[in-house]
Amino acid sequence: MPEADAPRDLMIRVVDLEKHFGDVQVLRGVSFDVARGEVLVVIGPSGSGKTTLLRCLARLEEPNGGEIWVDGSRFTGRTPRHTVGMVFQQFNLFPHLSVLDNIILAPRLVRKLSRANAVAEARDLLRRVNLLEKAEAYPVQLSGGQQQRVAIARSLAMQPKVMLFDEVTSALDRELVMEVLQVMKKLAEDGMTMVVVTHELWFARNVADRLFLIDHGVVIEEGPPDRIFSAPREERTRRFLGELL
């Protein structure tokens, strides 16, 4: 696909993405575009391939077929990985490092920032996720919601063009979910391009620009959240939303 074909405001283009693990076909030719600044929410039953889709976008899995383009260039093994940031269900903070050191590690090693510059940036990011007072704390001293907000700040410190969120609130207690979703909402309002796998319908309704329903490795329905919630075209979508509500 020639680069010139891509519209200017296109951030992600996925073409015929395929992934199998042994005999199990997890993604069967998924194609979609994400515009710059768009928030795409992916929903679907467990085992539908949502997480694998994100992991392919983050280059944690090597696709078996298809192409991924990010910001006009083919996303391959040689593209700097931090072009695409990812936040995980299990936070994955580095337990031996303080919050501040978690955030500045990659900027110092990969972006080659001086410690002073990296710290200044990290403090700005911590302010954005309302955790500046926890800079010297260790991950274990934080609540799950706080850890997840640090993980978001740590990803942002690499100035990614796209942020992926893989069920980032699923491991959290109910009362901590909202503080993380609010941070993500703010990020969306600031214009970040986001692909979000979530079961949080509040987020899907209020923040998503577009909704995707994946089942058995294919996109079965796609459209604006209002339309999908009020008038799903597919029986499977109706059933899945019925189970969630």
């Binding site: 995980f88 994955n92 580095f94 990659a106």
Partner: peptide, 12 residues
């Protein structure tokens, strides 16, 4: 494994 994966996505 998540430690490794998180670090990879950060570009290390």
């Amino acid at each position: 494994r998540g430690q490794n994966e998180a670090a990879h996505t950060l570009g290390l």
